[in-house]
Each structure stands twice: as C-alpha cells, then as structure tokens.
Design a protein around this nucleic acid. Structure first.
Lengths: 158, 158
DNA sequence: GATAATTGTTAGCCAAGGCTAAACTGTTTG
DNA sequence: CAAACAGTTTAGCCTTGGCTAACAATTATC
C-alpha cells in the first residue's frame, strides 16, 4: 500500500507539469489502458473483417494478412481465437463470416473509428496522418470524449 | 501479395463508411500501431519514474507498482529491461535514476501527455475522463497532430 | 542490536501475438 | 485428370509482460 510521504528528498518545486494524481486514480488509468490493449487487437481484426466483407463481399485470410502486414500463420491463429470467442464462424479453407456478436463489434468499432477519423480531419489534420492516428487512438477514446468529438465535427462542417 | 480483385461476390453497395484504403497504406497504419505498442509501456514506465523523481525526489519500485497497479515482481523485471535499454541506472535495493537518455524520453513523454491532456480539457472533456483517455491516446498521436492540438488549446484559452 | 515489517529480487509459470517452415487443401490449367 | 500453384493450417519457436511464491536485503521498532 504505502505511498510513503515521509522524507521526500526534495519537494516538488513544480517547475512544470501537473501534480501526480492520487494513487488509486493513477492506477486506474493504467489499468484502463491495459484492458484496452487486450481487446484492441481483437477489435481491429473484427473491424477489418467487417470492412472486407462490406467492401469486397468476403474476407479471406490472405487479404487480412496483407492489410495487417502480418503472416498468414498469424492470421490463421487469430481466426481460431476469434472463433473461440464466438465472433466469427469459419470452416477450414473457407472464407469467414461474422457472428451476430462479431457484427455488432465490427459495427461499433467502425463507428468509433469513423468518428475519430472525421474529428481529426475537422481539426485540420491531413488525411494520411489522420488515418494513422485514428487507427491507434480509436481504442482509447471513451464514449464521453467520442460524443464531444462528434459534436465538434458536426459544428465544424456546418 | 494478391489482393485479388476478381470475382467479388457482391459489390460494395456503400451504405456507409469510407472506402478501404489501398493495401500498402492500410498495412502501414497497422504497422505503426504495432510499433507504438512496443515502446508504449517502456515510455509509460520511464515517464512515471520521471514524474516520481520530480514530485517526490525519488522513484521506488513499490511506488511504481502501486501506481501502475502491477506486482512488484513485474516492476523489478521491467527495471532490469530499462537498465539493459540504457534508460535507467539502478543498484539493487536502491532507488532509481534516469540516464541522460531516460530523462530525454521522460521529458518528451510528459510533454506529449500534457499536450493531449490539456487539449482534451480544452475540448470540453471532464478532468477524470481526460486523464484516462490521455493516458491511452498519448502514444498514438503523431507530432503533426500534436502541434495542431497544442494550437487549438492555446486558442481556446485566450 | 535483535526482530519485525517493508521492500526488492529471483525462479518459474502462463497467455498473447508475432515468426518460419512444412504439410495440407482447393483451384486452375496444361 | 494430373500437376502446379495459391491459399490455409499446423507445429514449434521466441519475446513481452503479466502473475505467485519463496527468498534476500533494508529499514524501523522495541
């Protein structure tokens, strides 16, 4: 427990930066990030699968591998995991489908992704930078912030 | 290679969402995110160590463990890594110091963190949400976007 | 100053997400 | 229709970053 207050060698002398948040809050920040990391990749795969189905009619392992810049073996393994998680259905050597739940996740992810992407563009970020940043940021933006971003984008447009 | 165009089962029928980016660009997005992940944790540790030193005069493994909500064993192991990477110096059972390079990293991370945090607040996000989101987002915001965020924040203030 | 409490380290485990190489399946084509 | 090729899967490896349990060192306390 201890966050031992005693004997601080030199007091803050705050030349810049905010104070440290209280331990519990600080801990929760990191925990939230760690949790996000666990679902992040899963969501990326599901989102991409959804996009591929939407845009090309099917999702094949090879395409996923190419677009993710990852080996096919990795994709194959991941698909097994998605299967176990009940997010996709797949028969060996056949192309994939999203389950009900998978579709929901894809939908949510894509919506979030779009909000962040459009927000960044509305902010004035160039397209290719916005795409890269959005890909990384999307999993770390809370619903509250998302709402604010969306409002901002709409106001910018009209 | 193939991103096989032939025989798409059903054409887009784009009811929503942008088109898929070209494969190379798409791949690069994911690669950027993966790379960010590798350095992310390292940066978080270094940043926290820097903050602890700044605010309390020293960084002890127990404090790091508490603030990260992680076991002491994990911290200990991580410190060994940071050592190997030349980011901290540490003698067993003694508190840590950042190397030149570690300080630079801490500094950069903190600056980035602050920009994102202040930006979110300027956008209208409440403090505790902003803190959580900033923690996750900071590693995925490019320098370009960072600059834009900073400008935005400044304009909001005056 | 001996002992208790706190802090730090080590050993050994686990899951995730990469990889390559090799085996297998399905499809195309000579 | 057999062979070649493209796509998929499996096996087995590696690194990271968690964990617990056991042990070691330091610091505090009586």
């Amino acid at each position: 427990m201890s966050d031992h207050q005693q004997r601080r060698t030199s007091p803050p002398s705050g030349h810049s930066g905010d104070a440290l948040p209280p331990v519990e809050q600080h801990a929760q920040q990191y925990e939230t990030v760690r949790n996000a990391h666990e679902t992040e990749l899963i969501e990326d795969y599901v989102e991409l699968i959804g996009d591929l189905i939407r845009h090309r009619g099917e999702a094949r392992a090879a395409d996923i591998a190419n677009r993710m810049a990852v080996s096919q073996a990795t994709v194959s393994k991941m698909i097994r995991r998605l299967n176990e998680l009940g997010l996709v259905t797949s028969k060996p050597y056949r192309s994939l489908f999203l389950t009900e739940e998978g579709q929901k996740m894809a939908e949510t992810s894509r919506a979030r992704h779009d909000i962040v992407l459009h927000f960044l563009r509305a902010l004035g970020v160039d397209d290719s930078t916005a795409r890269i940043d959005a890909e990384g940021m999307e999993h770390h933006v809370s619903d509250k912030t998302l709402t604010i971003m969306q409002r901002f984008t709409e106001q910018q447009i009209k």
